[in-house]
Design a protein around this nucleic acid. Structure first.
Length: 410
RNA sequence: CGGGGCGUUGUGUAAUGGUAGCGCGCUUGGUUUGGGACCAAGUAGUCCGAGUUCGAGUCUCGGCGCCCCGACCA
C-alpha cells in the first residue's frame, strides 16, 4: 500500500477531546475516527489491525471445535422478555420499525443462540456443540470512556457452548481458557495478561476473566506473580486476600483491562427457552451452557496502551497493519518504487511512504504508526551497501541486504 | 444517572459585549529533501434554538454533543 493512496491521514496535533492514550494515538495515526462517544469508524489501518486480531481469535476458537456462524443484531422483544432482561438490562438499546419499540439492538446473543440451538439440538447425540460469531454489539453505556476501551457499539467474538452435563462444560471451559491464553500470547500481551478470578458465576462460585495490566484499565486486580494469576478486587472479600491456587498472600495491586471473559451459564438461558435434550432413557434434561467473549477492538486499544512511547504506537508484529514502513530518500524515488514492488511480489505487507514531504515528517509518521520494521533506501544506505533497517522497538539501525530483509520478514 | 470542565474553519488555538485572528493542513506557483524545511498567493469557522442589547463567539435560558470523577457494568 502506498501512503499517498491511503484513506486516512496522520495528524500532528493531539485531538482535544480525547485523553486516553489509545484514542490519541489511534486517531492521530488515522487508525480510527470518532463519530460519537464510544462509537468509532475503523479506517484501513485500524481495520487491518482488527482483522489480524480477529483471525488469531478465529484460529484458536476453531482449534477448540467452535463453528463460526453469524447472528442478527436486531432482536425481537419477546426473546428479551423471556429472559426477563427487556426491562432489567439498563444498557439495552431499544428500537422499532414503527412508533413502538419492539426490538432490541443486541448487547449479547444468548436470546438468539438459545432458541436457535433448540431447533438443532434434540438428543444427547447432538451434544456437545459450540458455535461462535463476530458481531456488532450495542450497549447504551451511561458513560463511554477511555477511547476504544469502553464502547457503545463494538465487535465481540462470542462463543457459546452446549453440554449434556456440568462435567462436560467444566472440561470444555478449561479448553477455552487455554485457547484464550494462546490468543493473548499471540497478539503480544501474554506476559501482561492474567487469568483472573471474578464475580458473577451463576453455576459456579466464580467466573473468570482475562485481565491485561495497564494503568488505563478500570479494574483493580491483585496479582500472584508465582502463579501468574490474579483476583479481581470485586471478590477480594469472598476469597480473602490470598492466591486461590497457592495461598500466597504477597499479592501485587494493579490496574487492568478485561480483555476476555469466560462464563459458565449453566441453565440460566436454556431454561427460559426450554432448551433441553433427550437422554438415553428418553427423558428431557436441560442443556448446560457456557459463553466466552473477546472484543477485538478493546484488545486493539489495550495493545496500544501497553505498547507505545512518546512518539507513537509500537505494534507487536502479529497485529501490525503492515510489517514494513518503507521510505526512500533523495534521488532514489525510482529505486524505492522498485523495492516496494519487489516486496509486494514477495507478499510482504509494506506501507510505502511515497509522499512528497520532508524527511522529518516521514520519520515522525513512521514512529507514530508504529509498524515493526522501518526500511530506508537512500544514497547513504546504498553507499553503505544496502538498506537501512530499524525496528520500532529498538533504537539502533543497521545496514542489511534485500535478501537479509526478506529472510527476516518471511 | 449525580458532580466538574468544555464546545470558534479539516485540526490545534486566540479574540474587555464592538471588523472573528494565528499555527498546522489543504490549493496554486517556486525553492527544498536524513527528524514535522522555506517564500508568495489562496481556502475554510463561532454546536442548535430562543432571549437581553444599537450590537453576542463572549451575557441569560433551553436543547444537543465531547472529556474527566463517581455510580452502574449480563
Amino acid at each position: 500500500m502506498k501512503q499517498s493512496e491511503l484513506f486516512s491521514k496522520t495528524n500532528k496535533s493531539t485531538p482535544k477531546d480525547e485523553e486516553s492514550v489509545n484514542a490519541q494515538l489511534l486517531i492521530r495515526g488515522g487508525y480510527i475516527d470518532k463519530l460519537l462517544a464510544g462509537i468509532y469508524s475503523y479506517l484501513p489501518l485500524g481495520f487491518r489491525t482488527c482483522k489480524k486480531i480477529e483471525e488469531i481469535i478465529r484460529e484458536e476458537i476453531n482449534a477448540v471445535g467452535g463453528q463460526e456462524i453469524f447472528m442478527p443484531s436486531m432482536h425481537p422483544k419477546e426473546n428479551w422478555e423471556k429472559t426477563d432482561r427487556w426491562n432489567n438490562l439498563d444498557v439495552l438499546v431499544k428500537i422499532g420499525l414503527g412508533e413502538e419499540k419492539n426490538m432490541a439492538l443486541a448487547p449479547t446473543h444468548e436470546e438468539v443462540v438459545a432458541p436457535l440451538a433448540k431447533k438443532i439440538i434434540e438428543s444427547y447425540k447432538d451434544l456437545p456443540k459450540a458455535v461462535y460469531h463476530f458481531q456488532n454489539k450495542f450497549r447504551g453505556e451511561k458513560r463511554a470512556k477511555s477511547g476504544i476501551l469502553r464502547l457503545r457499539e463494538f465487535i465481540m467474538k462470542d462463543l457459546y457452548s452446549f453440554h449434556s452435563s456440568q462435567d462436560d462444560l467444566d472440561k470444555y471451559y478449561d479448553q477455552v481458557a487455554n485457547a484464550y491464553k494462546n490468543i493473548f500470547e499471540r497478539v503480544g500481551i501474554g506476559e501482561k495478561t492474567y487469568f483472573t478470578y471474578a464475580s458473577g458465576g451463576t453455576f459456579s462460585k466464580y467466573s473468570h476473566e482475562f485481565q491485561a495490566e495497564t494503568e488505563a484499565g478500570e479494574d483493580t486486580i491483585y496479582i500472584c506473580e508465582k502463579c501468574h494469576i490474579a483476583i479481581n478486587k470485586e471478590i477480594i472479600e469472598d476469597l480473602k486476600y490470598a492466591c486461590p491456587q497457592c495461598g500466597n498472600v504477597n499479592l501485587r495491586e494493579t490496574k487492568a483491562v478485561e480483555v476476555g471473559n469466560i462464563f459458565k451459564l449453566g441453565t440460566k438461558y436454556s431454561a427460559p427457552f426450554n432448551l433441553a435434550y433427550k437422554d438415553r432413557n428418553g427423558e428431557d434434561r436441560p442443556i448446560i451452557m457456557g459463553c466466552y467473549g473477546i472484543g477485538p477492538q478493546r484488545l486493539m486499544g489495550t495493545i496500544v496502551e501497553i505498547f507505545h512511547d512518546e512518539k507513537g504506537i509500537i505494534w507487536p508484529e502479529a497485529v501490525a497493519p503492515f510489517k514494513v514502513y518503507l521510505i526512500g530518500f533523495g534521488k532514489n524515488a525510482i529505486v524505492a518504487e522498485e523495492l516496494y514492488q519487489k516486496l509486494m511480489s514477495e507478499k510482504i505487507e509494506v506501507l510505502f511512504d511515497d509522499r512528497e514531504v520532508s524527511a522529518g515528517e516521514k520519520f515522525a509518521d513512521a514512529d507514530l504508526l508504529g509498524l515493526p520494521y522501518r526500511v530506508i533506501i537512500s544514497e547513504k544506505s546504498i553507499a553503505a551497501g544496502g538498506l537501512e533497517l530499524k525496528k520500532r522497538n529498538e533504537t539502533e539501525s543497521r545496514i542489511i541486504s534485500f535478501d537479509e530483509l526478506l529472510g527476516m520478514l518471511k
